[in-house]
Design a protein around this nucleic acid. Structure first.
Lengths: 198, 198, 198, 198
DNA sequence: TATGAATGAGCCTTCATTCAT
DNA sequence: CATGAATGAAGGCTCATTCAT
């Protein structure tokens, strides 16, 4: 008889399983749509009984929130780390966009869900924190673009417009990127930056 | 006593009402989400009884298709007209993007629904025609970008990547544009083109 | 310009159309089922607009009642006439069953509807008259069977049971009779009587 | 503490409950009519929530099919067993009709539903199996009647017509039989057979 | 921890019916 | 006399969720 796992080990197994569920849910939701996927359907694809999901999540919407957190948290963390490292604004932008595109590409499913459910995120009561992180990330990028514009280096037509354009193109990447495509992540990111900084 | 309306007049009234319903539905769906809006809710916002909608549409999904058609049809038509008018590739691109941005901005609700429901459009059986029009439009833009690249005028990193970027930024406009904002449609469109053609 | 039809002519046309509708409805209901046939469907098969039916009938159930009346009224009338004509009980039974089978066969659709909707007829408030006519007819047949039994002619096991058997076999005819089948109406009727009277 | 039920026990409980539901549904449908009974109404009479029914049946029509199966399966099985036992054709017929009448009487509700919904059974796509069993049973009876006719014992007017008559009278029994009536099942069955074989 | 049964609410849709035209 | 538009109610069914086991 194996030794009874301790409390910590149990917690770890629980967390691992929870993260797996979030990942799987993102995959399923991205394909079928969040609303069009019923909890029983989702459970079946995850190889679990419908009721079993409720051990890991209070409900369907909390699962959606978890997906968005799993998407936004590391992105924001990494962006802040990059900005702390120093370098010119353009160097920082290039590094940031590379990291960002990589993140988008690795979390394509999360991104697709995120975009699908924009109207919930924008208006929902419980979504304030997700909105706030998105806002924080956008401000980071905006700050960089302003620094570049101020450096005079660029003929940026308008920092806000450029920000919007960049957001649009990078996030849109989730919708067309295919793993073994012609361009790798770095090439894509550099292409975007080249467009933006001329 | 007014003259009894003829068959043609009846048809016209029917069509007008139908178009109104599509427009209204786009507005409601954009705000609340397609799936989260029940048919009774939609009907109430349109000032019609729930069952009455079914005189104009076979079902909820057909309504969604109609929204996408109302979005794509005139855009494609106008794009084709512009390309037929002649001019350099860059001039044509500038004109096309202006028209495109204007369309996106005027049909913001349609665009938001379109993006929300991407997974249905991409996979659904009945969505082939919508997919095909989207593809056709993208090819039009791609052709222009290739012509520009071939003219040597531009340091386009990659025509396909540029296309994706442009699609991303223009379509994303629907998510942040506000009617009386700082930038008008022409400024936005020109900003985008400037990014792309350097 | 043809002369304006008089009130009587109008009434006649109305009645003719009404009878046509009853006939057509019986046909459609027999095939599809009364409940499974929606009023629009019925109207379409009759070549009339849905609302138009309501010029001839107060509602769907009244149409069903009319079908049953069109079935029962002439049957009862004819049975009474036959009994008034004299003859031995067995002769009268033979004549009655011939007339009855002929009626069932000619009104197959009515019969099928009648049997389908037995539970409504048995319990419904407005169905008392139909029930009463059915009862009256059954009593006529029962009387004949008793007279035959009393004549000692027959080894009828039990007049009531024989009545039930006869009702069962004759009414069931509607379910298998086909117009150009092997047996004609007289042969069928005589076969039934032969079974019953030995 | 009772032992946790195993998989087999669970399955058994499920099957038992399912059979109860079929039985109850037959009762309710016989009284109110299949179409006139809504699923919520049915559920209420069965003491279950509306949605709960769908654990046991895919839909309302499958429930109807189950009712017909519960009616036909044991009847056919028993008939085949009787025929395998040997005896003269007439003895077998008498035994078969007794068993058949007993079955009809015990499954009166099933029979009434079966007859009500004849049009669905006759035409529906999913009803082929039920139709086939009905046909198989009829052929069994027909075979017996032919053997009797060939034995020369009987002045059967026509084997096919006699079959139809027998079907009509036996099945019609469901519509008039009352549990504590004057005649018991054996008397009824024998009465029918006496009519048929003279 | 995980399950299968069960629930109540709500979904999309269709219905029988009415009525202005 | 007939139509097409519209309605309110109800239909069958699925949903997210709970809970005893």
């Amino acid at each position: 008889m194996p030794p009874k796992p301790g409390r910590a080990a149990l917690q770890e197994r629980y967390d691992r399983r929870q993260a797996e569920v979030v990942l799987g849910a993102a995959r399923v939701f991205a394909r079928r749509g969040y609303d069009q996927t019923s909890v029983p359907q989702l459970a079946e694809e995850l190889g679990i009984a419908a009721g079993g999901l409720y051990h890991y999540f209070g409900g369907k919407e909390q699962l959606l929130i978890a997906i968005c957190d799993q998407l936004m948290d590391p992105l924001l963390t990494e962006a802040q780390a990059l900005l702390a490292e120093g370098g010119t604004a353009e160097e920082q932008l290039r590094a940031l966009v590379r990291s960002w595109v990589a993140h988008v590409v690795e979390h394509r499913d999360h991104m697709l869900v995120f975009q699908q459910e924009r109207h919930v995120i924008d208006h929902g009561r419980q979504w304030a924190q997700v909105r706030e992180r998105r806002k924080r990330f956008e401000r980071l990028v905006e700050g960089l673009l302003r620094r570049i514009a101020d450096d005079g280096a660029a003929r940026l037509p308008d920092a806000r417009l450029t920000l919007s354009a960049l957001l649009g193109m990078v996030n849109h990447t989730a919708q067309w990127y295919r793993p073994r495509g012609r361009l790798d992540v770095a090439a894509i990111a550099d292409g975007y930056v080249d467009l933006v900084v001329g």
